[in-house]
């Protein structure tokens, strides 16, 4: 690793003060950042350990939940309120990484893990616009089975690997940010960027800003929600396609629905088109398939991942059918 200095912050104000210049990085569980530093892909001059900041998981007055930025993934997945009110979030987390990594990874760090692919990691031999803007992308002409089918660009086709964030996108989660100029909130669905011509810029965060918490607004329909992850092996692998969904059905009609996709884009992909198409429609397999077709209408496959387009459609429809139970 390239030498760096280390400081532990006991609160957000101290973390912001330690930041001082743009060469610092905040350190959570380290499961992505430490790995990337060892590969010299990330080269911070200073690490600011923010694992002592709030890790609380607390109910809000209106029935939502605020999760501290330092809360570990396991703590969220096992929390009684999350399991009962937002089961898709528990299910998304336990579908991700390994138990050891879930014990380490923080909420903020999970949100801020790099959107990445094998070519991003291969800094000895591969070109990558995310590592070196303007260099070119070897994934586009390379092995791209795992890559994006929605919202990609000619500069980057990597996918955001988080499972947790897919559930957060479906839940209308809100990211709490704190910077030297004050506090602000950003909906999770707007927090990550599509690659465009600057795939090295992955979020809307400003330099030095810190994620202090993520809020789950109250969502009674989330009681009927789940997360399905399709991958090449049974466990401990990134998603080829994943679907987080919640649905409310009234008298056989879709009253409301939330759908988000993982493994298909540079960011957690909120399926707004499919949601809009479904509201007010009969809760049937035909409706679900039609909505999935609409969401994937603009999909653009690479040489090795055309299967993802159909896989995403079928997984959306299957998840919604399962959640509909006898109502469908």
């Amino acid at each position: 690793m390239i030498p760096f200095s280390y400081a532990r912050a006991n609160d957000a104000a101290a973390a912001l003060q330690f930041f001082a210049n743009g060469a610092a990085k905040y350190l959570g569980g380290g499961t992505n950042l430490v790995d990337l530093m060892r590969e010299t892909i990330e080269r911070p001059a200073r690490l600011i350990d923010v694992t002592s900041l709030s890790d609380s998981i607390e109910e809000t007055a209106d029935g939502g939940i605020v999760i501290g930025g330092a809360a570990r993934n396991t703590a969220i997945a096992e929390h009684r309120l999350i399991r009962t009110r937002f089961p898709l979030l528990s299910r998304a987390i336990v579908a991700g990484a390994s138990p050891q990594i879930r014990n380490m990874a923080t909420t903020a760090g999970n949100v801020l893990q790099r959107t990445r692919c094998a070519y991003f990691y291969d800094n000895d031999a591969a070109r990558c616009n995310k590592r070196e803007p303007g260099q070119g992308c070897d994934a586009i002409e390379g092995f791209n089975r795992y890559h994006a089918i929605l919202g990609a660009s000619s500069a980057c086709i990597a996918t955001h690997p988080s499972d947790m964030c897919v559930a957060l996108a479906a839940l209308d989660a809100v990211v709490y940010l704190q910077g030297t100029e004050g506090k602000r909130t950003v909906p999770l669905s707007d927090f990550h960027r599509l690659p465009g011509d600057r795939p090295d810029i992955e979020t809307v965060m400003r330099p030095g800003e810190l994620i202090t918490a993520v809020e789950l607004p109250p969502k009674p329909m989330a009681v009927n929600s789940t997360y399905r992850k399709v991958r090449d092996r049974a466990s401990y692998a990134f998603a080829l396609v994943s679907v987080a969904a919640a649905i409310k059905i009234e008298a056989g009609v879709v009253g409301d629905v939330r759908i988000a996709l993982g493994g298909v884009a540079h960011k957690p992909w909120r399926a707004m088109k499919a949601e809009a198409a479904l509201r007010g429609q009969p809760a049937t397999d035909v409706s679900f398939r039609a909505a999935a077709e609409l969401e994937l209408a603009d999909a653009k496959a690479q040489a090795h991942n055309a299967f993802k387009v159909e896989l995403a459609k079928r997984t959306i429809a299957a998840v919604l059918t399962d959640l509909s139970g006898d109502a469908a």
Partner: peptide, 13 residues
Amino acid sequence: GQRVLSCLTLAVQ
């Protein structure tokens, strides 16, 4: 008491 990966944990943490 929690299982973690020591390769991705900094000793200073």
